[in-house]
Design a protein around this nucleic acid. Sequence first.
DNA 1: GGATTCCTCCGACAACTGTAGTAGGAGACG
DNA 2: CGTCTCCTACTACAGTTGTCGGAGGAATCC
Lengths: 133, 133
Amino acid sequence: MAEREYEIGSAEFQVLKALWHKGPSTVRDVMDHLHDRGRRLAYTTVQTLLTRLEQKGFVKSDKSGLAFIFKATLSRDRVRKSRVKKLVSQLYDGAAAPLVLQLIRNERFNADEIEELQKLIEDLDTDTKRSRP
Amino acid sequence: MAEREYEIGSAEFQVLKALWHKGPSTVRDVMDHLHDRGRRLAYTTVQTLLTRLEQKGFVKSDKSGLAFIFKATLSRDRVRKSRVKKLVSQLYDGAAAPLVLQLIRNERFNADEIEELQKLIEDLDTDTKRSRP
DNA sequence: GGATTCCTCCGACAACTGTAGTAGGAGACG
DNA sequence: CGTCTCCTACTACAGTTGTCGGAGGAATCC
């Protein structure tokens, strides 16, 4: 009943990201992918990580062919949202604005991104004004 | 010589935040602060956490009076920056813009914040235009 | 059909984390 | 002075995480 408390270790997380990248994969697929990114892990290590992720409910496995196929049940988007929320609550006292400001000050954006941002901000502004005429 | 690889456990992190809040503090100060926020830990637990943070170099202690005074050597700002950077690189392929967009879409801002944002965005825009006339 | 190659299952183990108890010293207090 | 209180030092211990090796079954290859 209680909301699943999720904790993903950093090695486990890399495996999860591999699944996001490659889609449903075997242990070997994941291992190869990690090797390609310079992450050298033993086959059984990857297997263990996948198994643990499955125990935690973040991955499902399914044996149709020779080897198990693992698939993420937790989407990148969900993780993004929850990580951002956690970050904001832990380091910004729950207020997103300072984080946004920090990002805008410290990061570089290209013209398209800026335009997109402007549009969004304008909408925000309009909404605000409309709700207190 | 190598850059310190920092990993702070979640209980340790709460202790560090207590130090940010209260400034240099004794074990007891930190414990009381945590108790106030509903985090009930034994005195010695807090002590252990502070000691570990010190071993990792995130905290300095100094015995002038009766009890040790602990002080964070790692600022909230540094942690903010490094966490944000990690978040962006791990979940947004290194591109900050999608994160900013997500934040603007999903979070609420008040009028002042919006104004502040607008100013910043306008400046960004001007700079971009100026650099490609 | 035996050797080779993969895969899964288990077990292992060290480091790190969360959490706390005990021992013993030093001040404070009646 | 004896007792209470608070502090530090040390030890402990279970759970989690990173990492992997070996045993044994199935598929493949010559």
